[in-house]
């Protein structure tokens, strides 16, 4: 056990005990103490770099295998349908998908249906794709289609014709002049769609308007709060799903475990699982303490 973990456990234990004593005595614990406690718990875990190992669950493993089993040079579309609020949760997924697909030498089509997605896509391209895959050539190995307004309307159009909606890429280059588009006319020529997002339009719209109609396999990556809503689509309409930071952490562990070149890669989701685990423990303790106090007060009132 590391010093950081022991310090955090002692801090959490002490704090929980104090709140338990106050609650049992019937004293109201000011919510500012609660805020301070949860904030400090997360801060401690971050400061001491507390980390836990992760093992991929079947739903994440299915997503990993889907990319793994595609033939070399397959066409993969990644949709960055999210905003900065969701970025800490789903950004690491985008990084992983970029790494995995390019390591497998697939062709990457990047696009977004969210106005805020384009800037985040630029960050991923600049921070992950270009430095880690300098051999990847624009127009031959990857292309950035940028943002288009219209939500599912855009999916409807590109399902039958990319050029009708995107005469050019995000940089103003004609699609016909990009080698990647020689054999790609519509979404039906894409081998896999990876939808990353947690709102509307997002994974659900990609499943309904592209996956179902075009018979294209879809892998999803969403914020944790949205994941339960997408389970009904798994495993037929959605071949794999990454839910929240945990899903991203599991995917990172799969990548680092299976590829030597990614052994030392940055793993923000695995890093975030430490603070998240600590926060979950505190929330569970609060639920227990809250209920103890509730039943004690009911007993007192009953007397």
């Amino acid at each position: 056990m590391s010093v950081g973990l022991i310090t955090s456990v002692v801090f959490i234990g002490g704090g929980v005990l104090w709140i338990l004593v106050q609650s049992v005595k019937g004293r109201d614990v000011d919510r500012r103490w609660i805020f301070l406690f949860i904030g400090s718990t997360v801060a401690l875990a971050l400061l001491f770099h507390i980390r836990f190992g992760e093992k991929a669950t079947p739903i994440v493993k299915a997503a990993f295998n889907q990319i793994e089993n595609l033939p070399e040079g397959a066409s993969v579309l990644i949709a960055f349908d999210y905003d900065p609020a969701m970025e800490p949760e789903v950004g690491p997924m985008a990084d992983c998908f970029i790494r995995h697909t390019l390591a497998r030498k697939h062709k990457l089509f990047l696009m977004t249906l969210w106005a805020t997605g384009q800037a985040l896509m630029t960050n991923t391209v600049e921070d992950v794709l270009k430095p880690e895959f300098p051999e990847a050539e624009y127009g031959t190995d990857y292309v950035n289609l940028g943002y288009k307004v219209g939500g599912f309307g855009v999916i409807n159009v590109v399902l039958s014709d990319f050029r009708a909606m995107y005469p050019t890429d995000a940089h103003g280059t004609l699609l016909d002049s990009l080698p990647m588009f020689n054999k790609v006319r519509s979404l039906r020529d894409i081998d896999l769609i990876i939808s990353i997002g947690g709102g509307t339009p997002g994974v659900k719209e990609w499943v309904l308007f592209a996956g179902n109609r075009g018979n294209i396999p879809i892998v999803g990556g969403t914020a944790a709060v949205v994941a339960p809503l997408l389970y009904p689509y798994y495993p037929r309409q959605l071949v794999g799903l990454l839910g929240g930071t945990k899903g991203a952490a599991e995917y990172e562990s799969e990548l680092t475990g299976n590829y030597d070149r990614f052994k030392d890669m940055d793993t923000p989701a695995l890093r975030m699982m430490g603070p998240q685990t600590m926060a979950h423990v505190v929330v569970m303790a609060f639920i227990i303490i809250g209920n103890i106090a509730y039943f004690r007060s009911r007993k007192r009132e009953g007397k």
Partner: peptide, 20 residues
Amino acid sequence: SATMYSLLAFFVASASYRAF
């Protein structure tokens, strides 16, 4: 934007103690 979203953690913690 991320900061605003992260504030949820504080309210979830408070709600878990008071309302759940």
